[in-house]
Design a protein around this nucleic acid. Structure first.
Lengths: 222, 222
DNA sequence: ACTTAGATTTCGCCG
DNA sequence: CGGCGAAGTCTAAGT
């Protein structure tokens, strides 16, 4: 990894055109060819960048980064190099995560009643012609219930569930299938659309779900 | 900006939990308190990070970054510091972009006739219950026309426009409202779906639109 | 290889 | 400040 701190000017042309006037910035050239231009503020997104794979042309006072097979070009004019060091970073190690949508699905699959009275799970990832439904359940009356799960539910989630329902209901045995949208957070306009489509919304909390199952678990471990 | 290259272990807890096993990585501490943990490969997204504003606790062999008012905590255990330098970056300079959807919308708002014979603009960002329509126009016969604008139009764009139309047409005065999808590039599947939904597709070219109005208006033609 | 959907999405605008 | 939509989205998984 090469780290350059320099007064520079940056031009990107490709899917759009972008220009950075002369200023002091951090340039990162990664081992795989990725190039990042960072400011001393702002979020994690670089001001400008080029993804790997790339071909880098280093003319000393000018770095030209091209992405093969595309029109993308990142051109960095180095006006004043304040620092230029290279580090060998050796072996890497992958990130481990917990708490993403899949985990919410696991908890709800284990406790479908949290989504409504008398709900029982039939299958996770129930396949339809347009993709898998997160949970397929039946309610106390034996009616089918398709559940779409999101961490944050937007209008897109409602449309996704509607697509599934359209195909599920083609089967006469499931013509009365209901839809439930479950999420940690549901956007108001998503709720509005869901309502107009006859889809019920349920806000759920992952920590709470895990906490609520704990007593049952202690019954067996005690 | 502080740049640390170190063998380290990183734990994030907040919206989810994430863990990075011990390895050599680049740590960036920006002037505004943002902290980024970068690997020597991969895109511009850090493996782990914390956005500003943050409070940083530096115990030498341990950096603890907290985000006030949230539960977010980023904890970095420094096992072996290979480099630790700080640079004063001085004044910043903002990024200038050209060619995004907004520019396309501006041009089409100024020249709605490019979308069809006799079209006149009524309003940009016309509000509906499920979001704003990019352009609301009327045609030569006085009929309403809702326009959705994209840089690249996919099936999603067609569904988005259909969503708007469903709500717009509830008003009897706009029951005959037509839909037009305008984009620099329209995916074949999107065009097919649009056709089946009675939505007209128009491919437009930003440079051409500008050329028709003011030949030398773009940022980087000089 | 291409498409689909998630993301600690981030970012910017507008209320 | 929150909601909504775009993004050079990126990225990983399934087909």
């Amino acid at each position: 990894m090469r780290l350059i701190v320099a007064r520079c000017e940056v031009v990107y042309t490709g899917r759009l055109n972008a220009f950075l006037p002369e200023a002091v910035r951090l340039l990162i050239v990664k081992a795989d060819g990725s190039v990042l231009v960072h400011d001393d503020a702002g979020g994690y997104k670089p001001l400008n960048w080029m993804a790997a794979p790339s071909r880098i042309e280093d003319a000393g006072d000018r770095l030209v980064v091209r992405r093969p097979k595309t029109e993308d070009v990142l051109e960095i004019r180095l006006v004043d190099v304040l620092s230029d060091v290279t580090h060998d970073m050796g072996e890497s190690a992958a990130l481990q995560k917990d708490g993403v949508e899949r985990h919410l699905q696991e908890e709800l699959a284990a406790t479908p009643a949290a989504l409504g009275e008398g709900l029982t799970l039939v299958r996770r990832e129930w396949p339809t012609e347009v993709g898998p439904v997160d949970l397929m359940c039946r309610d106390g009356d034996g009616e089918w219930v398709a559940v779409e799960i999101k961490r944050v539910a937007t209008i897109e989630a409602v449309e996704q569930l509607m697509r599934y329902l359209d195909f599920i209901r083609v089967d006469p045995a499931k013509a009365g299938c209901r839809g439930v949208l479950a999420a940690q957070s549901i956007k108001p306009q998503a709720a509005t659309l869901a309502d107009s489509r006859g889809i019920r919304c349920v806000e759920v909390d992952l920590a709470l779900l895990r906490g609520e199952r704990e007593p049952e678990l202690t019954l067996f471990t005690a």
